[in-house]
Design a protein around this nucleic acid. Structure first.
Lengths: 357, 357
DNA sequence: TGGAATCGCTGAAAGGATTCATCGGCGGAG
DNA sequence: CTCCGCCGATGAATCCTTTCAGCGATTCCA
């Protein structure tokens, strides 16, 4: 053994964590050899592998991600999510975490602060040289995102746009919204109000593609179906966090001709709607409520919210898979569309007090 | 100008992102000078600052975090959270995100995969050289955590242990549980069952300090209060995700002497309990239910779950603040305890069918 | 007015891993 | 027996930023 031991004083200064150099010395091989072993790269003999692995174990070596990222990969995939508390997004993250469990990749999430735009978080992930990015904010500039995607694989979840540079995963919002409308109309509803989040404001410069956003698609389908039935569509816009949904619903219920059904753009809003309905002493017999996303709480018997399942977990799994594919060399863009399924529950089941046709 | 321009071909290869070197050249100063400007460090003239900032703007320069982390800081704080979907943890993250909005620090979250232990995620954050770590998993080895904390500031949320190396933030679990028990007993309940998560299994090597875990403290208080009243405590253990809470509750309700009140160790469990209660066609008049954490859905009128507010957002804010303090040089450990407040709601409000005393 | 301290800025070294060109040894083909 | 090619392994170059010692010029104090 060489006298250059890893400084046996463990009391005063916090012992320097070992580096690839230390491992190489301990195993009696070169740094490059150790590097190949930890990356599972080609060209290492069994004997060397076991030697190096033993040295790694003895020295408790862990590669520094920052140093790896300087030349190679960071083995990190980044999720940009606009709202930490949103259960639908949570399902997506869960799915991806699951899919990555058996890979050397670690998932990190960059949450958005209130009033922060998605590009801040995406930039921040890019600065950290993650090997791939999953973006969910539908309102970042596609052109800008393509520039990011030139350097780092990107999967955009939710937005129906078409890009040659990044992959997209969407739910089938058109069919999902159709299912909702058929369901409500089938129950006999005519005064159906649609409640959704505010459109981008101020209008973004790429506004021509606003129809890409999932909520906008759902709203469009709502309008089409109402018109087709000769009914007047009523669309109410609120903030995305559900607080405004409650007050907006209260106003609707107090109006001279209150709706008999409310189609909310997502479950967060629908939960807010249900608050107002319950607080007004009403229930599904007075106002049917339908949401979108089928978050876990929707199936709780006290809530029992009719919703559209677009399988967030599958979206997350697929997003992870698409990124891994890109990292393995795929270059053509892929577009995935996830099928939707209506989960009819009590919030839209009973119709006793519906006005006659 | 030197002929070594930054390669004007912008069509074929994705233009190399500019580095601090490019900025230095563009501004006609040294790399070190640029570095000082972007770090807001001491010793730069106004003239130079404006020059450099203009160059940064022109070149769209963004510092590479990996390279910064090699010698300096990564300006990243890491959250290890055991369950992405847990609303209480979400509140903590939200609070921290808020607190960091005005700082140059970015928050990243390392989620745990199913069946993964907290130390995996904490290690992964340490490998990424985050400047500080917030850990929430109560079941990592304290000694191991102290070793991490030698190198990176750590705040442990939830666990009541005492460390000289890392800071801790806890709710006042003792007082919170007391409030719950006083509330239930005050309503006249005697057959009170406590439902909580499984204790660590197998028993961890540092089991002597198991009493540190918040759930264990709450359970201990429950037992004490029951004994003080001459009542037999009943404790049921389930998985942490609420699925088992439902089935366990069903079994309780089917037992010969069903409880008149259930004190759940947290709101996730309580929501599961409420499922079973509702599915059995019962409500608060039959079984009072109390949770812990006061997650947002608890106040929903359809749920209206009595719970203990321990201000998750404040915990997150404080965690961020403690880390920033450490980064500014504080070395003594800090322990913070957040006061609790009982939020009595309908799930424990009505007692009509309570058996007489 | 001389010397010291301060200020603004610079060049070079450092940090830990990967990548690339290269090299010695060995087996197989001619 | 010789030559070619492949395999396993290595040393050096590289990635981008911060840090540190140092340098000239200015200011301050005696």
């Amino acid at each position: 053994m060489t006298p250059a031991q890893p400084t046996p004083d463990s009391t005063s200064s916090p012992a320097r964590p070992s580096t690839i150099q230390d491992v190489a010395r301990e195993a009696g091989v070169s740094r490059a050899a150790v590097s190949k072993v930890i990356r599972n790269a080609y060209g290492v003999s069994d004997r060397m592998r076991t030697q190096v692995e033993a040295a790694i174990e003895r020295l408790q070596y862990r590669p520094r991600v920052a140093a790896r990222a300087m030349r190679g990969a960071s083995f990190t995939l980044g999720f940009e999510i606009p709202q930490v508390g949103n259960d639908f997004l949570t399902m997506i993250v869960d799915g991806a975490t699951e899919a990555l469990a058996t890979t050397p990749y670690q998932l990190i999430i960059a949450p958005l602060g209130r009033d922060q735009k998605g590009d801040v978080a995406i930039n921040s992930l890019a600065d950290r040289q993650v090997d791939g990015i999953v973006a969910i904010s539908p309102r970042v500039d596609p052109a800008w995102l393509e520039r990011i995607a030139e350097r780092t694989p990107v999967v955009m979840i939710g937005r129906h746009d078409r890009s040659d540079r990044y992959d997209t995963i969407t739910g089938d919002d058109r069919s999902g919204a159709e299912q909702v409308m058929s369901h409500l109309v089938g129950l006999g509803h005519r005064r159906i109000t649609h409640l959704t989040i505010h459109p981008s404001r101020p209008e973004p410069p790429w506004a021509g593609q606003a129809g890409d956003e999932p909520h906008v698609v759902r709203t469009a389908v709502y309008r089409e179906r109402m018109h087709a039935l000769g009914l007047e569509p009523t669309v109410v816009h609120t903030l995305f966090d559900g607080s405004e949904a409650r007050t907006a619903t209260r106003a609707l219920l107090d109006s001279p001709e209150p709706p008999t059904a409310i189609f909310a753009g997502n479950d967060t809003l629908a939960i807010g709607v249900l608050s107002a309905v319950a607080e007004a002493g009403l229930d599904a017999r007075d106002v049917a409520v339908v949401g979108y996303d089928d978050v876990p709480i929707a199936r709780h018997p006290l809530v029992s919210l009719t919703s559209v399942d677009q399988s967030g977990a599958a979206m997350g799994r697929e997003a992870a898979r698409l990124l891994l594919e890109r990292l393995e060399g795929r270059t053509e863009a892929v577009r995935l569309e996830i099928a939707t399924e209506l989960r009819a529950r009590r919030s839209s089941a009973e119709l006793s007090r519906l006005p006659g046709p």
